[in-house]
């Protein structure tokens, strides 16, 4: 009798575990797991901080030699002998890159004739392919570096839209995302290279 009651209770309990409740458990488990993982991986976005974590050290870069899409070899030392500063902008020929490059071309470059602006293509893999992308995107007039081996990408720990400003004494005055260009303009203004 007791056994029968226990069995009936067990059966009723089992009946409650419909496919719906099993689905609920599975989804709850998956969701909870993913959420827990996400909270670990994106704390900086969920709880953003305005703390300045920069170090005081201003990095000095070493010389580099690069090939342009016109197969010309340029090196940093030679450029800095001719210009007040060198600006590197890293492009992967994407919509945002196009917007930035268009803005640099039209709104920034004309105001800083003593600054060398170089676009760094780190995705095309060859000079010819890089040149083709440059032409298709309508930037024939710009100097584009074919960073086929990603050496410039590695040297400045760069990625898409990274903007680097190097002064004549090879100090890296800026190394960050382009955003709206204001930081680039501010940095160039401090050099007085207008």
């Amino acid at each position: 009798m007791l056994f029968d009651n226990l069995l009936r209770r067990k059966n009723r309990k089992s009946a409650r575990y419909t496919s719906g409740s099993r689905m609920y458990k599975i989804f709850t488990l998956i969701t909870a797991t993913l959420l827990a993982l996400s909270l670990q991986g994106c704390k900086e976005d969920l709880f953003p901080s305005d703390k300045d974590n920069r170090t005081e050290t201003i990095i000095t870069t070493v010389d580099f030699v690069a090939t342009t899409t016109l197969d010309e070899v340029i090196d940093l030392d030679a450029l800095l002998a001719e210009y007040d500063a060198v600006v590197l902008y890293y492009t992967m020929w994407c919509p945002l890159c196009d917007t930035h490059m268009s803005y640099i071309t039209s709104a920034i470059m004309p105001n800083y004739p003593q600054t060398a602006f170089l676009m760094v293509d780190y995705v095309s893999g060859s000079v010819s392919q890089s040149r083709r992308s440059q032409v298709e995107n309508g930037y024939q007039a710009l100097t584009v570096i074919a960073d086929s081996d990603q050496s410039l990408l590695d040297q400045f720990h760069a990625t898409m839209a990274t903007t680097v400003v190097i002064s004549q004494d090879k100090l890296v005055l800026l190394n960050e995302d382009f955003k709206n260009g204001a930081r680039l303009i501010d940095t160039l203004n401090t050099l007085g290279s207008q």
């Binding site: 900086e44 305005d50 300045d52 960050e176 995302d177």
Partner: peptide, 10 residues
């Protein structure tokens, strides 16, 4: 205050 793991001016 950081972009691609690189600390920047906030």
């Amino acid at each position: 205050n950081q972009e691609f793991d690189n600390a920047v001016e906030p």
